[in-house]
Amino acid sequence: MENLQHSEIITQPEKVIEVNKLVKRFGHFTAVDHISFDVEKGEIFGFLGANGAGKTTAMRMLCGLSKPTEGKGKVAGFDIEHQSEQVKKSIGYMSQKFSLYNDLKVWENIRLFAGIYGMNDKDIKEKTALLLEQLHFEKERNVLVKSLPLGMKQKLAFSVAIFHTPEVVFLDEPTGGVDPATRRQFWELIYEAAAKGITVFVTTHYMDEAEYCNRVSIMVDGRIEALDSPHNLKTEFEAHNMDEVFQQLARKATRKAD
C-alpha cells in the first residue's frame, strides 16, 4: 500500500476505478444501464447527470453500499461485489448531507473517523495538529462542530473524509448550499488532495465545477452518454461551456426527475 501510493516510477496510468457494464435494477426499473468507464490514479473525475439519471445509485455500488445486478466493478483493485469490506477500507466518502457530528468537537470528529479507519493514536495526534494548522482551524480545535459556519464545516468534512489517505474519495454533491467563494476554496482542497495522489470522484449540479474536473461523464437515463475532458466535450458538442453540453444531452432524457 505504502509503496503504491508514493510510487512515481510507474509510467503506465494506474486504474483506480474500473467499471465494466455495470447494471442495477429495482424490479422492472433499470436505474443504471450497462455503464463502463475507468478512472486513473490522481484524477478528478466528474460524474454528472440530472436528478434521477442514476448517479447516486452508481456511486453507491462503487462504495459497497449496494450490490450490482449485473456487471463488474473494481475500486482500488478490489471487486465491489465480493470484496466490499476491502473497498470500504480504501475509500473516503462525503455525502450531500452534512457528514460530521454536530455535537462533537472538531478534534473529536477527526479522532472518531480516524479511529474507525483503524489509524493508531500517534498518527492521529500528529496528523490532527498538521491538518488544523493547514486549515487555520487551531482555535476551533475544541469547538463543537455545530457552531462552525457552513463553509468551514464542509472543508472540515472533506478533510475528515481524506484523513486516512484513501485511494479514492467519493464526493456526493459536496458543495450544495455553499457560497461561490467557499466553493472556490473547497475546490482548492480537492486539487491538493488529487496532487497527493488521492483520486477524486465527484458528483455535482454546478456546471462551472464540471470545468474544474480532469474528465467528466454525463449520465442520461441510466446510461453514460458522454465521457471526455471538458475541453474535448465542448469541441465535440460545439458548445461554449459545460452547461450547454449538459443541456444538449439532458434534453434527450425521457425519465422524470425524482
Partner: peptide, 13 residues
C-alpha cells in the same frame, strides 16, 4: 436522519 448513518455504513466498521 442527519445522514451520518450513511457515512458509517460506507466505513469499514
Amino acid at each position: 436522519e442527519t445522514g451520518t448513518m450513511e457515512i458509517l455504513l460506507v466505513s469499514p466498521i
